[in-house]
Design a protein around this nucleic acid. Structure first.
Length: 317
DNA sequence: AAACAGGCCAACCGCCAGTCT
DNA sequence: AAGACTGGCGGTTGGCCTGTT
């Protein structure tokens, strides 16, 4: 049996990062000592090792990748680090209003199918979407003292929240058309290499007129086809709009030090100087840098209106 | 200025399905 | 066919950061 696998299966701690890291960020566990495995936050050196190895050999076979790369990490850890953070196309920064609306839309259809939802938000990871949902949406359900899965909460989301988000999007588009037209995912997708601009939701500034946005259904092939969400199967959900968390800068400090390094690494077929790598946006030139400064956010969307709406729902039941 | 509280999110977990041997 | 291995998923945790008292 593979030793790495054994460690994962036999792990006894209930999730989360370690609680007793040593000064070099390693949680001491008996199995890890035996296997000489590292845990906890990744170092800059580990990141470069992983990026460099994948650049030369590609992804997959994560356990053997970890061994061959000389990383004292489990394959799972390497995979997660790559997919959620190091991939060049990871889109970082604030989740846009359009993305928020799309998340609500898709979650109403599929529930906690985070990876499936993430497929429709290019550059966003399932982890990021999951975190968004838990920290924002569930928080407000808690504030409103209702279950996130309750009909009241879903109706509030459907008839109050999503229209409100849609109005904000339209208002933002009206005030800054240039930004709105180039807002990127999720309003842009590609069907057989043809760029498709998702129309914004039909916003008539009236809740009952809210029309779910068309969304993209992934077909069996790698192509995408547009489908329309009908009102009939459009169950409701609730979102948060006041979303304005700062980007975690903690890692940047580390990377800025590395940027001073003259060491070069390879990515794809080209040798890349670490100074060209932005760990929040990937390699410059591989993708457009996120225009996060253009992101607009709702101010506190949870107000007395929501409470009244919930009360009304209760009265109607 | 210090202590505290709460939010964010990276990284971990167990579980499971698919693939390999 | 069965066990081992791998990768992917959703859920959970806790360190770090920021805002408040």
């Amino acid at each position: 049996m593979d030793h790495h696998q054994k460690i994962e299966v036999d792990s006894g701690r209930g999730g989360g990062r370690g609680v007793d890291y040593t000064k070099n960020n390693q949680e001491i566990r008996e199995e890890d000592i035996v296997m000489d495995l590292r845990r906890g936050p990744w170092t800059v050196e580990e990141d470069f090792t992983l990026i460099n190895f994948i650049a030369h050999h590609g992804e997959g076979r994560w356990n053997s990748l970890a061994r061959c790369a000389g990383l004292k990490r489990t394959g799972k850890s390497c995979r997660l680090r790559w997919l959620n953070y190091l991939r060049p196309d990871v889109r970082r920064g604030n989740i846009t209003l359009e993305e928020q609306l799309l998340i609500l839309e898709l979650h109403s259809r599929w529930g906690n199918r985070w990876s499936k939802i993430a497929q429709h938000l290019p550059g966003r990871t399932d982890n990021e979407i999951k975190n968004y949902w838990r920290t924002r949406v569930q928080k407000h359900a808690k504030q409103l003292k209702c279950d996130v899965n309750s009909k009241q909460f879903k109706d509030t989301m459907k008839y109050l929240w999503m229209p409100r988000l849609a109005e904000r999007i339209q208002a933002a588009a009206a005030s800054n058309p240039a930004t709105a037209s180039s807002s990127g995912p999720p309003t842009t997708t590609y069907i057989q290499n043809q760029e498709i601009q998702h129309p914004l939701p039909n916003m008539n500034h009236h809740m009952s007129d809210y029309t779910p946005i068309p969304f993209i259904e992934k077909t069996n092939s790698l192509n995408y086809s547009a489908t329309s969400a009908s009102s009939d199967n459009y169950s409701s959900d609730l979102t948060d709009g006041c979303y304005n968390f700062p980007i975690n800068q903690s890692n940047n400090q580390d990377y800025s030090q590395v940027n001073q390094s003259t060491n070069q690494m390879c990515y794809g077929e080209s040798t890349i100087n670490p100074t060209n790598y932005d760990f929040h946006h990937g390699f410059q030139g591989f993708q457009e840098v996120d225009q996060q400064n253009n992101t607009q956010w709702m101010d506190n969307p949870w107000n007395i209106e929501d409470v009244c709406f919930l009360q009304q729902l209760n009265n109607d039941m």
